[in-house]
Write a protein that binds this DNA or RNA. Structure first.
Length: 729
DNA sequence: TCCCTTCAAC
């Protein structure tokens, strides 16, 4: 507390030593006393103090009361605005400052440049750069660093059509460095040169950064870090790592900023060995409790599927911040630990850490995967209350969540409500329509996207090809597949090939699919072959199936799906001996068939049903309802399709077997547990069988309900006896 | 003045 009355001498000494004032109340008292003793000079004297304390409101208030504004007052409010994230204000104050004839200097330019960077305003940025050069501030270290940072941020990040060549760990080649031993060894990574226009744009922009850097007469660790981060963020990984070594030659040690810029590179390239070396370096230099490094390490380990290490790093952080929480949540979700992700999210809220907007897009996929619409809706509520709903990332993940949880209408509503959807939003929506059908919606949206949003990226093509595949649109698919590389310069990757191969197979063009897969430019995976094996079953081609199965067993000798499919193919053809042989082989290899399971969400609770499971407390009621449905269905012309029942048993038993299918139980339970007219949403871990598909169509008509079934591949919307998949799946 | 985290994927 200051004395109530301070002598002019004390006031003067306080003003000369403003860092001694650390509290808002002290600054305000000082201000009051200044106003009393020398009102004319009070405002000008107090502004730098308010600014230094981050009291923007007070500083601006004093600033507006000033009739004439000294340079220090201008600088203070400009810097304070920038540090509060008020970049527009900071820049407009700078413009006013110049108009007033006050000459800016190296003290203020860095924050102005930072504001330009944050505003992604390249025109403004370049004009400020011009000013920097003219005013001779270009040689100022801080200004030059800020200038580099600005150009890093101005690199066109709008173009999503970039796909970098990923490399495996064997492409790393350790090289010795005198200064940092094994740490510097980590920084050898050759990257393939940039391939497409977007890459060239980025490289060209980084050149501007490089030019500023090269012309600097004096460089510090920040200069190097800025350049390294700029390269790393723009995919120039090799250059980034090379520069870490170069900075060592400049006798500068990488610091925690350097490490957190390069760690994502090893995350991106999934090289846990190199990542661990950096972890070791961080520990030796006591950087490991740094939240920035911690978050990068969590991310890196998660990317390398070592979530348990991520968890250890997280647990050792003394004070995890919102970003560290988000990293561990995202890492868990991305590694399929959805429940764990949700648990951590709740824990974060419990720890009174305010989730940052991105946390919602990290956790939302957990709801999408678990099909827990009620949780997704809760999160949506939280998002709206937090005012995050205009955030494009969050809106995109909401679109995805609603689509994956079966509510394509709300997904579309959220999408249409977006101010400026980006490529991800469009892609999520197109994928949503691809999964739900009809495919025409997806095709129309793709066209709209090309008109409104410009170039589709490679994921957008995955989405549109998936849509074609789900609807059997062979010609359209070829059109997109060809135009992808011809018109957009996107090299097809496994997902594109997989979609086309899947489509050819479903359309019965089995040989064509086989040739396509055999000659594609990417090594086919077992899952690609598996789609063809599935097609062989549908189209009853045993010979090709055997050939395909062999390919799969070569790649994955214990592939469960392929064993089951192949054994079913034999059974369907009456080749019981071969089927039995395969089953025996599975037993010998210690493989167990995945049980069919379906889930239905009733009153915010998820109920699970395993085929023929009688343990549900309402089993009798469910069974009774199914019998009633069966009678009505047969009156309406339903004929059981027992083809999918592959056991060597009597027809009557087969019919009984069908009624025990898990989705049938889940649907029946949904109907008897909800008021008339309620939509039933069921998720199944396998594909729906032909008979259940037919039966569900009848049931939807009989009970007048919409029934939405999500199987491993897509959604089926049953309504009035029809299905949105058009019976093609 | 610099660094970290985020979406879409048969």
């Amino acid at each position: 507390m200051l004395p109530t009355s301070t002598s002019t001498a004390v006031l003067k000494s306080l003003l000369h030593n403003p860092s001694s004032i650390r509290k808002k109340s002290h600054a305000q008292q000082l201000h009051a006393q200044l106003l009393k003793c020398c009102p004319a000079a009070a405002a000008a004297a107090i502004i730098p103090i308010y600014s230094a304390l981050g009291l923007l409101h007070e500083a601006l208030h004093a600033f507006t009361s000033l009739p004439s504004r000294p340079p220090l007052a201008w600088k203070s409010v400009i810097r304070c605005s920038a540090s509060h994230g008020l970049f527009h204000r900071s820049v407009s104050l700078f413009v006013q400052m110049r108009a007033s004839g006050t000459p800016p200097d190296g003290d203020v330019l860095p924050s102005v440049l930072k504001s330009c960077a944050a505003l992604r305003d390249s025109k403004l940025g370049e004009s400020i750069h011009g000013y920097v050069v003219r005013s001779g501030s270009g040689s100022d270290l801080f200004t030059a660093n800020a200038l580099m940072n600005m150009y890093c941020k101005l690199v066109d990040s709008n173009n999503g059509a970039v796909s970098y060549t990923r490399m495996s760990s064997r492409d790393f080649d350790g090289r010795n460095s005198r200064k940092f031993g094994s740490f510097a060894d980590s920084f050898h990574l050759e990257c393939k040169p940039a391939k497409n226009d977007a890459d060239f744009d980025r490289v060209a922009s980084i050149e501007k950064v490089r030019k500023v850097f090269d012309e600097m007469t004096e460089r510090d660790v920040v200069s190097w870090n800025t350049l390294i981060a700029g390269c790393a963020e723009n995919g120039m990984y090799g250059d980034a790592l090379e520069m870490v070594r170069e900075m060592g030659l400049d006798a500068l040690k990488p610091d925690s900023f350097t490490l957190s810029s390069v760690l994502p590179i090893f995350a991106e390239f999934v090289d846990v060995r190199k990542g661990m070396e950096i972890h070791g370096f961080a520990i030796r230099h006591m950087f490991d409790s740094d939240v920035f490094i911690g978050s990068s390490l969590i991310h890196m380990y998660a990317k390398c599927t070592r979530v348990e290490y991520s968890r250890r790093v997280f647990d050792l952080l003394p004070k995890p911040d919102a970003i560290s929480w988000n990293s561990i949540i995202a890492g868990s979700v991305q590694n399929g630990m959805f429940d764990e992700g949700l648990r951590l999210f709740r824990q974060m809220l419990h720890a009174k850490v305010k989730p940052m907007p991105v946390a919602f897009s990290s956790i939302m996929p957990a709801c999408s995967h678990l099909t827990t619409l009620h949780l997704g809706k809760q999160l949506h509520g939280y998002v709206i209350r937090g005012g995050f709903d205009s955030n494009v990332f969050i809106a995109s993940s909401l679109v995805d969540m609603y689509a994956k949880c079966g509510n394509i209408r709300v997904a579309r509503q959220v999408f249409e409500g977006m101010q400026s959807p980006d490529m991800v939003s469009w892609t999520a929506m197109i994928m949503g329509h691809a999964l739900h059908g009809p495919a025409e919606e997806a095709l129309a949206l793709f066209q709209r996207m090309e008109e409104e949003n410009g170039k589709p990226n490679y994921v957008a093509f995955v989405a549109i090809l998936t849509a074609c595949s789900h609807a059997g649109l062979v010609d359209e698919a070829w059109k997109y597949f060809n135009s992808m590389s011809k018109d957009y310069g996107i090299i097809p990757c496994l997902e594109h090939y997989a979609a086309v191969a899947d489509l050819l197979g479903r359309a019965g063009k089995l040989e064509e699919a086989y040739d396509f897969i055999s000659t594609m430019h990417v090594k086919p995976t077992a899952s690609v072959w598996s789609t063809l094996l599935g097609a062989c079953r549908v189209h009853k081609n045993i010979k090709l199936a055997e050939k395909v199965a062999e390919k799969i067993f070569e790649l994955e000798p214990k592939n469960m799906g392929a064993h089951v499919l192949m054994s079913n193919i034999y059974s369907a053809a009456g080749k019981w001996k071969e089927a039995a042989k395969l089953r025996m082989a599975m037993k010998d290899k210690g493989m167990r068939k995945q049980p069919a399971c379906s889930w239905v969400e009733i009153k915010n609770k998820v109920h699970a049903f395993v085929a023929h499971d009688k343990s549900h407390p309402f089993y009798d009621k469910i069974s009774e309802a199914l019998e009633v449905f069966s009678e009505q269905m047969e009156r309406e012309g339903y004929v059981p399709n027992t083809e999918d029942v592959l056991h060597d048993i009597e027809e009557e038993q087969k019919r009984y077997a069908l009624c025990g299918h898990s989705e049938r139980l889940a649907i029946a339970f949904g109907i008897i547990s909800t008021p008339p007219g309620t939509t039933i949403r069921v998720t199944k871990n396998l594909r729906v069988c032909v008979d259940c598909h037919t039966a569900t169509k009848f049931i939807s008509k009989i009970v007048g309900r919409e029934i939405v079934v999500r199987d491993v591949n897509r959604f089926h919307h049953f309504k009035d006896g029809m299905c949105s998949c058009g019976d093609y799946w």
